[in-house]
């Protein structure tokens, strides 16, 4: 009996703990500024849901070092997905609120980069809101497995995973704690 139960329980490995996430985000913040050629015209845009929290953290990290107040927005890409017919509607469409993007260096922030389809949708949505000078992509975890020719400019950690493995990013604002886990099997 106990053996059956243990098989059903997915294995979880911790990839980043709280302190490692803090260090990674600090490095990502400075890379974002570096890649943007300074803080002028940077706009951070987080993808709902956990990308939003990460974008605001990167904003605070940059603001602290550079003494700036970088505009930060949130983007829900549900209505730009290409799979409404196959997955059915996702009832909860989150908030989209963006600062002016025209002529800015927009940094899209998400927690995990996998197939690239979410980023494709985010690019479409961003360009409907304005004409950024440039768009960069910053992700906490790049797990490989792209289905589109999309790459990140700033990456926290890179791992190579198979389709039955999953990366769970938990952030204290929503989940009560900061941790990045690899999960295998189970739900």
């Amino acid at each position: 009996m106990s053996r059956v139960v243990s098989l059903a329980v997915p294995t979880r490995t911790e990839l980043l703990n709280e302190r490692a996430i803090a260090r990674t985000l600090a490095r990502m913040a400075s890379e974002v500024v570096e890649r943007s050629g300074g803080t002028d015209g940077i706009v951070l845009v987080g993808i709902q849901r956990r990308g939003v929290e990460l974008a605001y953290r990167i904003k605070r990290l940059i603001d602290k070092v550079e003494r700036t107040n970088i505009p930060c927005g949130k983007l829900d890409i549900t209505l730009y997905r290409d799979d409404l017919q196959t997955i059915g509607p996702k009832p909860v469409v989150g908030e989209t609120s963006l600062p002016d993007l025209d002529g800015q260096t927009v940094v899209i922030v998400d927690d995990v980069l996998y197939t690239g389809r979410t980023v494709r949708a985010a690019l479409d949505e961003c360009t409907d809101f304005g004409r950024p000078r440039r768009i960069l992509l910053a992700v906490l975890v790049d797990r490989g497995g792209r289905e589109l020719p999309i790459q990140a400019d700033v990456v926290g950690v890179t791992v190579s995973l198979t389709p039955d493995e999953r990366v769970d990013v938990l952030v204290s604002e929503l989940d009560g704690r900061d941790v990045v886990q690899l999960a295998r099997g189970g739900e």
Partner: peptide, 15 residues
């Protein structure tokens, strides 16, 4: 969330 779509400059989503 659809209320906000009508407030956008480009009042259109590809859903």
């Amino acid at each position: 969330p659809f209320k906000e779509v009508s407030e956008r400059q480009i009042k259109k989503v590809p859903a």
